[in-house]
Amino acid sequence: MATGGRRGAAAAPLLVAVAALLLGAAGHLYPGEVCPGMDIRNNLTRLHELENCSVIEGHLQILLMFKTRPEDFRDLSFPKLIMITDYLLLFRVYGLESLKDLFPNLTVIRGSRLFFNYALVIFEMVHLKELGLYNLMNITRGSVRIEKNNELCYLATIDWSRILDSVEDNYIVLNKDDNEECGDICPGTAKGKTNCPATVINGQFVERCWTHSHCQKVCPTICKSHGCTAEGLCCHSECLGNCSQPDDPTKCVACRNFYLDGRCVETCPPPYYHFQDWRCVNFSFCQDLHHKCKNSRRQGCHQYVIHNNKCIPECPSGYTMNSSNLLCTPCLGPCPKVCHLLEGEKTIDSVTSAQELRGCTVINGSLIINIRGGNNLAAELEANLGLIEEISGYLKIRRSYALVSLSFFRKLRLIRGETLEIGNYSFYALDNQNLRQLWDWSKHNLTITQGKLFFHYNPKLCLSEIHKMEEVSGTKGRQERNDIALKTNGDQASCENELLKFSYIRTSFDKI
């Protein structure tokens, strides 16, 4: 039985969820670079991206490699990797027998973001014989899940209580170790020597080791999670996991709180800001991140802002960003909400898709409305799209047979046209069989910064309504002859009103 693990408890099935942008060198404390989270699957090609990484700022997932063999891993080693800020997950990587050479110096898994409450997941690794993470000293947050690894031993010899604050939620089941077939031998045991430290858990006094050649490092209890030197002297209180010299914040392997210019500090002093819960960055760093993602459509890219001495992905609820200094300031009234469309555009074809934009005031991208039916549609669209004030790209209304009016965009005031449909149009209306009105132009103002209007096959939309939009939106004169079809717009509506004058002759039985 794995020490510190839980057996036999019912657990939810383990679901495996399925960018080499360097964020800056980590400095003297770390020998390499800070790398983003990685999802490495199918083959070993991307694994080489770990070569210079000291910190993975995010998670590391290595999974679904069915053609790899043990010899493929023999020359692979990433000794610079010290810390993973989120979680480490391995799933069905064939041929991998140990992690001792792959990650010989991995010391800390912070667990800032977890995989279903777990910071370390080893699942269905069919050839893994031992973990071998002999320098792993601290899992700051989260638990361990090690399950269905039929060859995995050296679990009962690990004292997880020396690595985690609590072992109650560890789930370590259905491994070879369960069948008591392992016969784990710690260093020196074969020669009758006791080389590794022994600890007591559940009444068992057991030597602690990761492999037959690597003991588990056990520091004096007084050192807590700070770690200790090879001689057993406690590291500085700002260290986490390990250090090369005692009581020196510049000799830590990793930091308990924050890293700044080669030393570990309790908090980031001005003019620095907390970033990702582990390091200090200056304003320029946060500003660069903001600008890199301002026009990016890459998933996970955030326009970072500053709030409460932190550089964070977005302002919290009730705050909006001051564009001059990136500071989050309290909103006066309802907060603006910028919604970034991942692929640059979004099609609204149902109430469900409209709900995804609920509360958005600025759309960074283009909207395509293609709704053919739905219950209580006008009210639903207004509830979900009615706060949109600005669209950076274009607005396209296409084959939306259920629409009679666009009044559900009740606050839309600006279409920038930074991206144009077919390279020309910022407003595009095609084949809307029941569209009769755009907006009530006596109450609604709309500016279209650039781009043209396109109207074709809107049989109940009168040309007068379209011409009014040209005047109000500032697009009059931009359109070419064929942009607004004269014969297919309003051709099934009563669009022309003329005053009919009647004269009559009164007659009676005795007068003409």
Rank of each mutant, 00 (worst) to 15 (best):
residue 28 H to D: 10
residue 30 Y to I: 01
residue 31 P to H: 03
residue 31 P to K: 08
residue 33 E to P: 13
residue 40 I to K: 00
residue 41 R to K: 02
residue 45 T to K: 11
residue 48 H to G: 02
residue 53 C to W: 00
residue 57 E to T: 04
residue 57 E to A: 07
residue 60 L to Y: 00
residue 66 F to V: 13
residue 71 E to P: 13
residue 72 D to A: 13
residue 72 D to F: 04
residue 74 R to H: 15
residue 75 D to G: 01
residue 78 F to A: 07
residue 79 P to R: 07
residue 80 K to F: 03
residue 82 I to Y: 14
residue 86 D to K: 04
residue 90 L to S: 02
residue 92 R to V: 02
residue 93 V to K: 00
residue 97 E to V: 13
residue 97 E to H: 05
residue 100 K to E: 15
residue 102 L to R: 00
residue 102 L to K: 00
residue 102 L to M: 07
residue 103 F to S: 00
residue 105 N to G: 08
residue 108 V to S: 08
residue 108 V to T: 13
residue 113 R to A: 03
residue 118 Y to H: 08
residue 120 L to M: 06
residue 122 I to R: 00
residue 128 L to K: 00
residue 129 K to R: 13
residue 134 Y to M: 13
residue 136 L to H: 01
residue 138 N to M: 13
residue 139 I to R: 01
residue 139 I to G: 01
residue 141 R to K: 10
residue 144 V to I: 12
residue 145 R to M: 05
residue 146 I to Y: 03
residue 148 K to M: 06
residue 149 N to F: 02
residue 150 N to W: 09
residue 152 L to K: 01
residue 152 L to P: 00
residue 156 A to E: 03
residue 157 T to N: 09
residue 157 T to G: 07
residue 158 I to V: 08
residue 159 D to A: 07
residue 159 D to F: 00
residue 160 W to F: 14
residue 160 W to A: 02
residue 162 R to C: 14
residue 170 N to P: 05
residue 172 I to P: 14
residue 174 L to C: 12
residue 179 N to F: 07
residue 180 E to F: 05
residue 184 D to F: 15
residue 186 C to S: 08
residue 187 P to T: 10
residue 189 T to F: 11
residue 194 T to V: 07
residue 196 C to K: 09
residue 197 P to H: 09
residue 202 N to Q: 06
residue 203 G to D: 10
residue 204 Q to N: 14
residue 207 E to A: 03
residue 212 H to A: 13
residue 214 H to N: 14
residue 214 H to P: 06
residue 217 K to H: 10
residue 222 I to P: 05
residue 224 K to T: 10
residue 224 K to R: 05
residue 225 S to L: 08
residue 227 G to C: 05
residue 227 G to F: 12
residue 227 G to N: 03
residue 229 T to A: 07
residue 230 A to F: 09
residue 235 C to D: 00
residue 238 E to G: 05
residue 245 Q to W: 09
residue 248 D to I: 03
residue 250 T to Q: 04
residue 251 K to V: 06
residue 252 C to T: 02
residue 254 A to L: 15
residue 255 C to P: 00
residue 256 R to P: 02
residue 257 N to I: 01
residue 261 D to L: 08
residue 261 D to N: 09
residue 263 R to H: 07
residue 263 R to A: 11
residue 263 R to W: 15
residue 264 C to Q: 00
residue 265 V to R: 07
residue 266 E to S: 15
residue 269 P to M: 11
residue 271 P to Y: 14
residue 271 P to V: 05
residue 275 F to Y: 06
residue 277 D to S: 12
residue 278 W to I: 03
residue 283 F to W: 05
residue 286 C to R: 02
residue 288 D to M: 13
residue 296 S to F: 14
residue 297 R to L: 06
residue 298 R to H: 03
residue 300 G to M: 09
residue 303 Q to G: 10
residue 304 Y to D: 03
residue 305 V to S: 11
residue 306 I to G: 12
residue 306 I to E: 05
residue 306 I to F: 14
residue 312 I to M: 09
residue 313 P to A: 07
residue 314 E to F: 01
residue 314 E to A: 11
residue 314 E to Q: 03
residue 317 S to I: 08
residue 323 S to G: 14
residue 328 C to I: 02
residue 329 T to Q: 15
residue 330 P to R: 09
residue 331 C to W: 15
residue 334 P to M: 15
residue 336 P to K: 09
residue 336 P to C: 03
